[in-house]
Simulated scan of single mutants.
Amino acid sequence: MTFIELSNQIFNESVLDYHKTDNVDAPINNPYEFKTIEYYLYLKNWIDTVQWHLEDIIRNPEIDPVEALALKRRIDKSNQDRTDLVELIDSYFLDQYKDVVIKSSAIINTESPAWAIDRLSILHLKIYHMQQEVERKDSSADHLTQCQTKLNILLEQKVDLSTAIDQLISDISDGVKKMKVYKQMKMYNDPALNPVLYAKGK
Rank of each mutant, 00 (worst) to 15 (best):
K126H: 02
H53G: 04
N45C: 06
I117G: 07
L54S: 07
Y188W: 13
T145K: 15
L6S: 08
I28R: 04
M187N: 13
Y92G: 09
K98Q: 12
T163K: 12
Q131F: 03
P191R: 09
V101Q: 14
L71A: 01
S104A: 15
E135M: 14
L71H: 05
H19M: 07
I122M: 02
S170H: 14
A141C: 05
E38R: 11
H53M: 09
L54Q: 12
H124I: 02
Q157S: 14
R136I: 03
Y32N: 11
L197N: 01
S112L: 02
V50W: 15
E62M: 08
L43R: 14
L168V: 10
E156Y: 14
N109T: 04
Q80N: 11
N79M: 11
N30F: 06
I127Y: 04
V176F: 06
E156L: 14
I89R: 02
T36C: 06
K186M: 15
K103P: 06
K77D: 15
N23Y: 11
Y18Q: 09
E13T: 02
I117M: 14
D190H: 00
Q96I: 10
P191Q: 07
F34T: 07
T49S: 12
I75D: 04
K98G: 02
A26Y: 15
N23D: 15
S173F: 07
D190I: 04
V101N: 15
L6W: 00
E55F: 10
Q80P: 04
N189H: 03
L125Y: 10
T2I: 11
K183P: 03
V176L: 10
D190G: 02
D118S: 15
I47C: 03
H19D: 06
K44G: 05
K177E: 15
V86S: 12
S7D: 00
M187F: 09
D48V: 07
E156W: 09
N60P: 06
F11A: 02
N8V: 00
Q51G: 02
T36D: 04
E5M: 06
P61K: 09
I28Y: 03
L43A: 11
M187V: 13
T36Q: 07
P31I: 01
R59P: 05
Q157F: 09
